[in-house]
Amino acid sequence: MVVFRNRLKEFAIKIGMGLVNQTKLITAASELSRNMLRYAGGGVVLIEIINGQRQNGLRLTFTDTGPGIPDIKEAMKDGYSTGKSLGLGLPGAKRLVSDFEIQSTVGKGTTITITKWKNG
């Protein structure tokens, strides 16, 4: 976890992301990777630097082959949790990034893509 966060921070600094946005992105990534470890027993994260119209950004893709999420709408609500957590992971992460996409198939796994622009 700590290694992943530091790696992500390097990328964020490389594209010149401000401190607050760095913190938001790393926190969101931290929530999502924790979910992946807890519910799917692990997964893969892809970090990409992307060029937008006005500014650069980072795109992170979290892929796991875990149990999947049966009701995404429900899972995106504040305070919903199947575990013992606060249930802020998914909706909280969504609020911290510029763009959030989730795809999940029960029994196959979940893919979450988040994008954070340098100034957004």
Binding site: L19, Q22, L88, G92, R95
Partner: peptide
């Protein structure tokens, strides 16, 4: 930065 993030996170 941490305070701003926590508020946005809803915590």
């Amino acid at each position: 930065a941490v305070a701003i993030t926590l508020v946005e996170l809803g915590l």
